[in-house]
Amino acid sequence: MADCVFCAIIAGDSPADVVLDEPDHLAFLDRRPVFKGHVLLVPRTHVVTLPDLPADLRDGFFEATQRLATAVVEGLGAQGSFVAMNNVVSQSVPHLHCHVVPRTKGDGLRGFFWPRTKYDDGEAVEYAGRLRRALGGDRL
């Protein structure tokens, strides 16, 4: 899809700090993270919402979500994670994406209010590398 920012990232036309690159999906750091290490997982096929996700992509998508939830704990030292996706309402990019956000007790996240932060110079590359290593390698 020509005007989809996630399709542009998948095509390599827009930069991203990639943490997982597999045949059916791609995961990269959110540019405006709730907390540093906040990852977005997207299917490579342009799919707008979860109900649109083809059955043959579903299990792999959620298996990758599980691995990312583990990686934010093992790679970043988080105590847990927040995993979420929006369908149409509050969906800022009309391409299915799953948020995997590292969590620590007392981090200040309450309900569905998502404060945003920014990476300092070089931090995004460092966080992406830590997550790739926790996922089993730094092959990118």
Rank of each mutant, 00 (worst) to 15 (best):
V89Q: 12
D52S: 06
D13L: 05
M1T: 14
V18D: 01
A84T: 14
P15D: 12
G37C: 14
Q91R: 01
R132W: 09
I9P: 01
L53E: 11
D107A: 14
V83K: 14
L68M: 08
G37P: 06
T117M: 11
G106P: 08
L76V: 05
L29W: 12
P33R: 03
M85P: 01
L29E: 00
V39S: 01
L50A: 05
D56F: 11
I10V: 14
A2R: 14
S81M: 02
D3S: 10
Y127N: 09
I10D: 05
E22A: 04
G75P: 09
F6D: 04
G37H: 13
V83M: 13
V93E: 00
M85Y: 15
L140M: 09
F112P: 06
D21Q: 13
D120L: 11
M1F: 03
L76I: 03
G108N: 08
G77K: 08
R116Y: 05
Q66Y: 13
V42R: 07
A55N: 11
G122F: 12
L131Y: 10
P23H: 03
F62M: 04
R139S: 15
R139C: 08
R44S: 00
Y119S: 02
K118D: 14
P94D: 07
V100T: 03
A124G: 04
V19I: 02
K105F: 11
N87T: 01
A134C: 13
G111E: 06
K118H: 15
P43M: 03
E126Y: 01
I9V: 09
P15Y: 07
R103Q: 05
S90P: 08
R103Y: 08
A55E: 14
D30Q: 10
G106W: 01
L20V: 06
A124H: 00
A16E: 00
A55L: 06
K36F: 11
V42N: 06
H25N: 02
E74M: 14
P15F: 10
R44Q: 00
L40Q: 08
L135T: 04
A11I: 08
R133I: 12
L76G: 11
